[in-house]
Structures are given as structure tokens and as C-alpha cells.
């Protein structure tokens, strides 16, 4: 990671990578959502409303993956003082918050026809709502810190501590009796309780949204770096 301590070197790689991630993401999302919404079968119990899955699950994964990224960036900022770590954390926060909100909204829309309710305070839903509040808090903290011209240490500590919510979200459906169902997909063997005809569109759309997420983060990192450059130059001119 230290080769990217020089922002110029990072930008040289980030510029073409943004394009490739964006194009790859768009293609995979089109494939995943196209087959998920139009070609895949309806569910034997849920009927057509199962199709919300193809947006809801990728959004949930990225919401949690986003905060994992913030935690790693925070760690590398606090320990190695990597100059891009704080920039990365701030770049991740906004798309992370948006995907969390998307996950909550789609889940709520799915819950009404399936469970018979838009919202219940069960472990999974409550911990996911807390994640949204954590994102909002992180964004506010990072903004306040930037206006003060600080190093972002408090923001990084907050990013690291907030990561505790991630295993809670993951295991909320196993620790507590919850309305939300348990894991359907197992990557460590054991098989998945989701039919193959629905699994492939889901994985394609999840990968597609992940690439898009990566492209957005790189784009935002470049924008933040450009802004920092402008601010530094303005200060020099004013001095």
C-alpha cells in the first residue's frame, strides 16, 4: 500500500481503474438485474416480490463491506499514517450510507407483502438501522474535522469502533430469535438454500454493484484529492 503514499502515483492508476470498474459494474448490473427481474423464476411462496432480493442483498453486503473498508482505512490511518487512508474513509462513507438506506427501503417494501409489516424492531433490522446512523455520524464527524483542518484522528477512531456493529449485524439472526430469516448463501460449503436459477442473477448483480461501488469510491477519492490541492493552493496565494 505504501507505493500509493504518493497521491500522484495513486491517481495514475485510479483514473483508468475508475473507468474499467464503472463499465464492468454497469455490464454486470445489467446482466444481473436483467436476468433477475425478467428471466429468473418467481418464488414458490413469495411470488414476484422475491425479485427485490436482487437489489436488497447486494445493497446489504455493500453496506457492511463499506464499513469494513472504513475500519481498515481507519486502522491504516492511525497506525501507519497512510496519507490516502482518511481520504478513502471519507470517500466510502457516502455510497455506504446510500446502500444502507437502499437496503432498509427495499427490505421494508419486501416485508409488507411477505411478513405483513413494513418495520419491526427485530435484531437484524435494528442493527442495520444503527449502521445507517453510524454512517451519518461518520460523515458529520469527517466534515466537521475537515472544516477545522484536523488530521481526522477522531473520525478514524469512530470508524474503527463502529466496526463492532458489523459482526452484530451478521450474527443477529443467529443469536436472537428474529423475524428476519437466516443466511441463505454459504460460501464455506454447506450448500445454499437458494435455487441456482436465482443464485446466479444475485451473484452477478452483487458483483456488479460492488464494482460500481469501487468506481464511485475512486471517483470520490480523486475529487477529494483535487479539492485538497485547490485548498492548499488558495492558502499559499492568500499567504
Amino acid at each position: 500500500m505504501h507505493i500509493f503514499a504518493n497521491p500522484a502515483r495513486f491517481l495514475k492508476l485510479a483514473r483508468p481503474l475508475t473507468l474499467w470498474l464503472g463499465v464492468g459494474g454497469a455490464v454486470l448490473i445489467a446482466l444481473g438485474l436483467g436476468s433477475g427481474l425478467f428471466l429468473s423464476p418467481e418464488d414458490y411462496l413469495q411470488g414476484e416480490s422475491v425479485r427485490i432480493l436482487y437489489v436488497h442483498v447486494p445493497a446489504a453486503w455493500l453496506a457492511m463491506g463499506g464499513w469494513t473498508g472504513i475500519a481498515l482505512a481507519s486502522l491504516s490511518q492511525l497506525v501507519w499514517k497512510h496519507p490516502l487512508a482518511g481520504v478513502a474513509g471519507r470517500a466510502i462513507a457516502l455510497p455506504g450510507a446510500i446502500f444502507t438506506a437502499l437496503c432498509l427501503i427495499t427490505g421494508s417494501l419486501w416485508g409488507r407483502p411477505t411478513w405483513g409489516t413494513y418495520w419491526e424492531w427485530d435484531g437484524r433490522m435494528t442493527s442495520m438501522l444503527i449502521l445507517l446512523f453510524l454512517y451519518v455520524g461518520y460523515i458529520a464527524l469527517a466534515e466537521a474535522d475537515r472544516e477545522r483542518g484536523g488530521e481526522g484522528r477522531v473520525t478514524a477512531i469512530f470508524g474503527l469502533l463502529g466496526a463492532i456493529n458489523i459482526p452484530i449485524i451478521r450474527y443477529s439472526v443467529e443469536w436472537w430469535n428474529s423475524l428476519h430469516q437466516g443466511q441463505s448463501i454459504s460460501f464455506s460449503g454447506g450448500g445454499s438454500s437458494i435455487d441456482t436459477s436465482m443464485l446466479w442473477p444475485l451473484l452477478a448483480s452483487a458483483l456488479g454493484f460492488s464494482l460500481l461501488f469501487g468506481a464511485i469510491v475512486l471517483m470520490r477519492m480523486r475529487a477529494i484529492l483535487a479539492l485538497q490541492k485547490v485548498e492548499a493552493r488558495m492558502r499559499r496565494l492568500a499567504a
Binding site: P41, Q46, T114, Q181, S184
Partner: peptide
């Protein structure tokens, strides 16, 4: 409230 389990499959399956 109906609780949905973690199985997703088409009607024929």
C-alpha cells in the same frame, strides 16, 4: 406476522 425462512426456489423445484 408470517416468518419467511431462508429457502428461495421456483414453484416447480
Amino acid at each position: 406476522l408470517a416468518k419467511h425462512d431462508e429457502s428461495y426456489m421456483p414453484p416447480e423445484a
